[in-house]
Amino acid sequence: MIKNFLISLFVFVLITNNSSSESRFGELTEMRDEKMRGKDNQWVRPHPGPFIWNHIEKEKGNFTWEDADQYVVYAQEHNQTILATIWPHANWEQKSCKRKKARSPFGKRFTKYLSKPCSMDDYKNFLVKLVDRYDGDGLNDMPGLTKPIKYWDVMNEPEFKMFFKGSKEDFIEIFNFSSKVIKEKQPDAVIVMAGAAGMFPESKKYWKVVLPKIKDNFDIANIHHISGPDGQCDKQLWVDEFADLLKSVNIDKPIWLTEAMTCGPPVKAWVNAFLNGAELIIDVGVNAPGKKMSKKGRKKLNEFIAEYDGFSSIKKISEKKVEFTFKDGSSKTLEF
Rank of each mutant, 00 (worst) to 15 (best):
K332R: 12
D132V: 00
V128T: 08
M199W: 08
I7S: 03
L211K: 03
N156L: 09
V181A: 06
I251T: 07
K180A: 09
G310K: 10
F218V: 04
A221M: 08
V11L: 01
T146F: 01
V286R: 05
I317H: 00
F336C: 02
Q80D: 12
L334H: 15
L334Q: 05
P158G: 05
Y206F: 15
S115C: 07
E279C: 00
E169P: 00
D244Y: 01
M261N: 15
I281R: 06
D230I: 00
S227Y: 10
P229M: 05
T111H: 07
N217C: 15
I7N: 08
F110G: 02
Y151V: 02
W65P: 06
V271R: 03
S178V: 05
S115T: 14
F311R: 01
F326S: 11
A243W: 01
N62A: 11
A273K: 08
A278L: 04
L114C: 06
Q232D: 11
W256G: 02
R32G: 07
A102S: 15
F200C: 04
K320I: 11
K108E: 12
Q76F: 13
K95L: 13
D252E: 09
I314Y: 12
E77C: 09
A68M: 10
P265F: 00
I172D: 04
Y151K: 05
T258E: 04
W207D: 06
I52S: 10
N41A: 08
P229F: 09
E59T: 13
E323D: 01
K124E: 15
M142R: 14
V192L: 10
M1H: 03
N156W: 09
M293R: 12
K180D: 09
K180R: 15
D240E: 15
C97P: 00
K253R: 09
K291Y: 03
